[in-house]
Write a protein that binds this DNA or RNA. Structure first.
Lengths: 229, 229
DNA sequence: TAGCGTTGTAAGCGCGTGCTTACACCAGGG
DNA sequence: CCCTGGTGTAAGCACGCGCTTACAACGCTA
C-alpha cells in the first residue's frame, strides 16, 4: 500500500516558500529524490540488487519510474548512491577505541526495527553477490574502518586483525539479517556484544604473539570503556 | 573459452564399458549430469545465482541448455542440487572438537585454488542475497554445525556461541572470497587460523560467565590442540 | 532390418527487465 | 498571450531471461 501518497500536495501559501529543505512542495525535485532513495534502500535491502526492480522502487516511492532514470541515470548508480549515504558518518564521529563496539551495536540493532531504519547493512549483504558495486563499496568502507581500528594495536599485523574483526561483524549481520538463524537472530544485542567483545579483546590488542617485548598483559589494565558493571 | 569440448567423443572399444563413473562415453547421461553440476557450481560461484544464466552454465558444460531442464527441472533446482553436494560430509567425518578448525581451514583454502575446487562457499555467499534457497540451505547446514559445536560447551547458551563462531567463518569467507579485502584475502591460512582460534578459545568453552563453578581462568592451562610450536 | 526408449539439438515463445521517448503540466518572465 | 525550463507521466522499445517444443541421432533388442 502507498505509505506516502497523500501528504504530497500541500499549499505553500501559508509559509515562506524560501525554505529549501522544507516538506513536500507540489513539484519538489529534492523531495522526490529522497523518496526514491529511501524506497530504493528498502527494496534493495529486502530483495537484493538483482531481484529488485526499478518498477518496485518507483511504486514504493510513489513516483513514475522514468524519474528514477532522470535523477540517477541507472539502476546501478542508484545502488551506489544508496550505499554511499551514511557510510562514513560513524567513522568520523566515533573515537577509535569505541569504533568497533559502536559498529557492532549498529549491526545488532539493524534487523529488529524495520520502520525508519535505513538497513544499510542488509543492502550490502543482499547485494554483495552480484552488482559488483557492493563489493567495492564494502571493501572501501571496510578498509577505512580497519585502518582506524588497526591504530589501536601496535602489532605489525594490526590491519589484518582489524579486518578479521570487521569480518565477524559482517558474518553476524549475515546470520541475523539474511539467514535469520536462531537463536542468533533473536538474541539480545547485549549478550552478543559481550561475547564478541570478550573474544576480540586480545585480538585488537597485543596479547597474541608479544614478540617485540611489550608487556603481554600490560594492556589489561587499560580497560576499554565498557558499560557493563 | 571451452575447457572441455574436445575430450567428449571417445571410443570405448578399448576399455570395459561397465565402469559406471568412467570418463565420457558418447551418450553418457551421468557424465552430462555431473558436467552440468560442475559448470553450474563454477558459474554460480563466480556470478551469483541471479546473475548466472542457464545459457552460461550450458556453454561452460558444453551441452545444450535444454538438457539442463531435462536433468534438473529448473534453474533453482539446479542451485539446490549444487548446494546439496558435499555439505555434510565434513560434519560426519570430523570429531566435534576439531570441527571448527577443520571448517575454518576449509574456508581459508577455498579461495586460492580455483581449478578443481568446488568453491561451495562462494556459491553460498554470492547467492545468499536472493534465490531464497541459499539462505535456507545455509541455515540448515549452520544449525547442524552449531549443534555439533555447542556440545563442546557446557554453557546454556552454547548454541548461540557456536553460531557466533560460524558467523565468523562466513564473514571471513565473505571478506576473502567475495570482497577480496587486503591483506585479509591474501593472508596465510595459518596466521588467520591462529588468530581466530585464539580469540574463540574462550567462546567455545566456558570462560565467559562461569556461573556454574567451573574454573574461570582454566583455559590457559587447558590448551586446545594447536599445531603451532 | 525395424522398433523403441534415451540422449542431444535447434528454434523459439512469453515475459519481465532496464531504459527511452514523446508529451502534458506548472511556474516565472517578456 | 507565448516562451522557456523544470517536473511528472504514459507508452513502449529492445533485449535477455527461464523454459518449452518438435525433432534428429544414437544404442540397444529382436
Amino acid at each position: 500500500m502507498d505509505t506516502s501518497g497523500e501528504t504530497r500536495r500541500q499549499d505553500r501559501s501559508d509559509g515562506s516558500p524560501a525554505s529549501e529543505e522544507a516538506a513536500h512542495r507540489p513539484r519538489d525535485a529534492r523531495g522526490t529524490r529522497t523518496r526514491i532513495l529511501h524506497a530504493a534502500g528498502a527494496v534493495f535491502a529486502e530483495r537484493g540488487y538483482e531481484a529488485a526492480t526499478v518498477r518496485d522502487i518507483a511504486g514504493r516511492a510513489g513516483v513514475n519510474q522514468a524519474l528514477i532514470f532522470r535523477y540517477f541515470g541507472s539502476k546501478k548508480a542508484l545502488l551506489t548512491e544508496v550505499m554511499a549515504q551514511g557510510g562514513k558518518e560513524q567513522l568520523l564521529h566515533t573515537p577509535p577505541d569505541r569504533l568497533f563496539e559502536t559498529a557492532l551495536r549498529g549491526v545488532l540493532a539493524e534487523d529488529g526495527g524495520e520502520p525508519g531504519s535505513d538497513r544499510l547493512l542488509a543492502v550490502y549483504l543482499r547485494s554483495i553477490g552480484s552488482a559488483d558495486a557492493a563489493p567495492e563499496t564494502v571493501r572501501a568502507l571496510g578498509e577505512e574502518y580497519a585502518a582506524a581500528l588497526a591504530a589501536l594495536s601496535s602489532a605489525d599485523d594490526g590491519t589484518l586483525r582489524a579486518q578479521l574483526a570487521m569480518a565477524w561483524l559482517l558474518g553476524i549481520g549475515l546470520m541475523r539479517v539474511v539467514v535469520g538463524q536462531e537463536p542468533l537472530a533473536s538474541a539480545e544485542p547485549e549478550e552478543i556484544c559481550r561475547h564478541v567483545l570478550t573474544a576480540l579483546d586480545g585480538l585488537l590488542r597485543d596479547e597474541v604473539l608479544p614478540r617485540d617485548g611489550r608487556a603481554p598483559a600490560g594492556r589489561a589494565a587499560k580497560r576499554r570503556p565498557d558499560e557493563r558493571p
